[in-house]
Design a protein around this nucleic acid. Structure first.
Lengths: 230, 230, 230, 230
DNA sequence: TATGAATGAGATTTCATTCAT
DNA sequence: TATGAATGAAATCTCATTCAT
């Protein structure tokens, strides 16, 4: 070859060659999720990801095109994973209040046990959701939760239990805000106020609190109520 | 990859020898705040900050020791700025309900109009608040808000208006969570649900909503209430 | 700094620090010209260029932005160098035939002694002149030669010496084609026909030949001439 | 940097198992010719070639040993194709002037309609014809044109029409130079002088011009001629 | 004969930081 | 106090090539 062209000098392999693309890709995504969650998009290192993978750095480029492509795959996987959980909640067989409480508990538990997901979403917001904007598949996944909330609210309203001036997006944001913040801002909040938000007692208290807050909010006020006046 | 395509390209200011260290430092911090808020700690570029500064890159090292020192200064400034606002709230002359409502409004407005602060805090959480941990001054500044909430809650409890099982940290987190999430997660939330959270109408609705949610939550339930039962 | 951020570990310098940007840039361009001429744009290696430079690879990016920026600088320099030569030819004091002959000789000598220039131009043609298209400064430089040829042709025509149906671009192409080909295609031509085009005797013969060919071509044919008949 | 932005993106052909080695090889060579012509030896990508081929990348290595072997095959094919054209010219039945004119026209047309050939030769010169040097078969193929020119010149000389001091290689170079340059340097020349050398009118003019130039050059000067004197 | 997965080696480029003045 | 030039180290990415089937 041209004296200036790189030529691959073969050396004995060390890694296990799977020839199973899906497994290879899933492996890379799993490792990358942790790295991106830990250090952010800019802070994560392709080398570091590759090192913890069953394959080599080269495969990241082979399958994902680059660091940003890998990040996008991680983002998609992170959002896709939620959908599976939402299935089987059987919310429609519960009365509205119970259904809403169950959905809140579900959200609380999910965020609490999926800190990586919470961090990835926080990171995507730092990037102004520009990757999300280019992955329309992700959107559909998440719209489902709005349908769920909307159905519960409608039933509650029909039964005269819930007020009519809040819609599904408002309520979902209320729920998400609390469950998300508790995990995403755990470090600054804990550092400043010297509390450990993951401590079981506090965790349980907050789980009750968010459910109560949302339920009190959506409940139809008795005519004589005055909390909102002022 | 280019994670910096978005973001306003501002023309570099003309440099002039000020010989006013405080002004120079303040200028650097102001520029750096925007850059860190826009790109994160790892994503921000010292070169980019220096270019937009009135002085040269060397000054960043002269005054702040390096990128991380500058970030720390930005972080301290971001938290310190809140204190000014808390002055003059005169919460103690208001009745508990009004005082709490006022504090909530204040938090809502502050986060809404200080997106850079919100983003810096989100970024610091990505880094697990390890810089915050080394800046004890920040902690003290922020503990004040807990005192304020605590005083309001105590008065309300004394008057039989507020329940006794929630403490200041719980309530502060409730308030912060919503106000913060609305700004920090604006991009992913807006993208997924196709809503513009900064739209004035929605903004006003959410401002009312968070106040109502907190007030309903802390209020002493009438004996016959049953919404929270299950 | 962040545990994941690269930090520069200082080591004693080895290279001579000039602090003379123009000299540094000129040095890089000179080396790069040889490398690009030898291996083409894709074939040249930034590492190889840097190694032969007084400075480091980093400076190539500092001053030229990247490999392609450096190539563009090389291209501009290559074309700019011709202009200097064209000055001082004093073609206007010679009679048309002599002026033309002198210009041809000049072109012949230039291409012959500037093989790198010839090769760079050949390389730029491989890239379809897309870099040239983005460097309008280069164009102006070269238009001058057309003016020179045009003036000579006009004078010759006025004196009834030259024919009127060939314009400056045609004649310039004729001259360039031969002078350029002799250098650019030296290798394949020499290999196939086993001749050394740089051998002094052949070189002199071809220099005479191209002058003669052009002069015979532009000369006004005697009425009875029949070379063009067929 | 992307040196590949230009160039047609063709959809990959559907692969089918042909089991026809010659056809497979010819297919690969055809695709490779385009790629090498478009990007040069270093610039062409084995992946890109393979993608546009009817077969897989592995076949390139199976049949040609590697990138350079494939390039060599392309080079050989490019030169070999000329031979077919030279057959059937029947130059020996024409008088010397007509024969020469016909050969010139032929060269002009060939280069004009085989830009890839021209580019491959230019590329091989960038590499100093070192591949050509190792392919003696190519040499023999091309020597034939020298015989043709030589025979014409000899006949012309015998008839007192042509001068005696130019040999076949000189004249062939003269012809080649012009025909080749017009195609090879089309891009820089066109860009600088803002002319389209492939435009039919200019093309026809240049075709006439090169024939005239060569014929005038080789013709025996009348004793009284003086244009070449100085 | 044929293929998609996989890869070592080296290429280009970026970045926080420091030096000479 | 201030600056523009300069840089080592490491990051991202590319490429010709080969393996397992």
């Amino acid at each position: 070859m041209d004296t200036r062209t790189s030529g691959a000098k073969r050396a004995p392999r060390e890694r296990s060659r799977t020839n199973d693309p899906d497994r290879t890709k899933a492996d890379i995504i799993a490792v990358a999720t942790e790295e991106f969650a830990a250090y952010g998009l800019s802070g994560a290192r392709v080398d570091a990801i590759a090192e913890r993978t069953r394959t080599s750095k080269r495969m990241i480029y082979y399958y994902f095109g680059g660091k940003e492509g890998l990040y996008l795959a991680v983002l998609e996987k992170a959002y896709a994973d939620i959908r599976d959980i939402e299935q089987g909640l059987k919310l429609d067989v519960l009365d509205p209040v119970e259904a809403l409480r169950r959905l809140i508990d579900q959200t609380f538990e999910y965020d609490d046990s999926h800190a990586d997901f919470v961090r990835i979403v926080a990171i995507e917001n730092i990037h102004q959701a520009k990757h999300l904007a280019e992955a329309p598949s992700i959107r559909q996944i998440n719209l489902r939760v709005i349908e769920l909330v909307g159905a519960i609210l409608a039933r509650g309203r029909d039964q005269g239990l819930f007020r009519a001036d809040l819609d599904a997006v408002d309520v979902h944001m209320m729920i998400s805000a609390f469950c998300f913040f508790r995990v995403a801002n755990r470090h600054t909040f804990g550092e400043i106020f010297q509390v450990d938000l993951s401590e079981p007692g506090l965790r349980a208290k907050h789980k009750r609190m968010i459910a109560e807050a949302v339920l009190r909010l959506v409940r139809q006020e008795e005519p004589a109520g005055g909390a909102a006046g002022g």
